[in-house]
Computed example of a mutant assay.
Amino acid sequence: MNEHRLKCFVAVYEQGSVSAAATRLHMTQPPLSILLRKLEDELGVTLFDRSGHRLVPTTTGELFYLRAKALLASLQTMRRELREAEQGARGSVRIGCATAASLFVMPDVMQALEADGLDITIHVQEGEAGHMLQRLRERGLDLVISRSEYATPELETRVILDEPLCLALPPQHPLAGRDRVRLRDLRGDRFLLHQSPLGTGISDMVLRACQNAGFVPNVVYWGGETLPMLLMAHRGLGVAFAPQSFGRLATGLPPLVALEGVQLRTHLNLAWPRQYPLTPTAARVRDLIVERFG
Rank of each mutant, 00 (worst) to 15 (best):
H173N: 04
L186N: 07
G177Q: 13
R79E: 14
Q195I: 11
Q76F: 04
A213K: 07
F9R: 04
V124K: 05
S74F: 07
L133S: 04
T28D: 14
T279L: 09
L198V: 09
L231S: 10
D189F: 01
L249C: 01
D116W: 02
E138R: 13
S245K: 10
Q172H: 15
G130I: 07
R187M: 15
R178L: 06
F293E: 03
L161R: 00
L231R: 03
L36H: 05
P273D: 12
E225Y: 10
K7R: 15
T152E: 14
C166H: 03
A100E: 09
A213W: 02
M132C: 06
R235A: 08
G61S: 08
R5M: 03
L6G: 04
G91A: 12
P31W: 15
L155S: 06
P217R: 00
E14I: 06
L167F: 07
C210I: 01
L186W: 07
L198W: 06
S148W: 01
L133V: 09
R139Q: 15
L66W: 15
K69G: 04
D185V: 14
L165E: 01
L36T: 04
E114T: 09
V10H: 00
A168S: 08
S51A: 06
Q29N: 14
A242C: 05
V18G: 06
V10K: 00
D116R: 10
C8Y: 01
G236L: 12
T281H: 05
V18S: 05
P164H: 06
R292E: 03
T279M: 10
R158A: 09
Q76N: 08
A209T: 10
G214Y: 00
D119M: 02
R248D: 13
L133C: 08
C166N: 07
L43A: 02
A73N: 12
I160F: 03
M132R: 02
A20C: 00
Q125G: 02
A20D: 00
R5F: 00
A240D: 09
G140R: 01
V10D: 00
R50Y: 06
V93N: 02
V105C: 06
V290R: 10
R284C: 09
R24P: 05
P171K: 08
V257S: 00
L256Y: 02
G252V: 05
T23G: 06
R208N: 13
H123W: 14
K38D: 15
V93H: 02
K38W: 13
N2K: 12
C97E: 01
R135F: 08
A240I: 05
G199N: 08
L230Q: 04
R180P: 04
L268M: 15
I122E: 03
Q111T: 14
A115V: 12
A240G: 08
P31T: 15
Q111H: 13
S74W: 11
A68C: 09
A68M: 07
L207P: 10
L72M: 08
A250S: 11
R90M: 05
S203P: 07
L165G: 04
Q76G: 03
I202N: 12
S245T: 13
L136Y: 00
L47I: 00
L36F: 10
M78P: 04
E154Y: 14
A176K: 03
I34E: 13
R274H: 12
V206P: 14
A282G: 12
E149H: 04
V159C: 15
M1C: 04
A209Y: 09
E62K: 10
Y65V: 10
R182Y: 01
G201F: 01
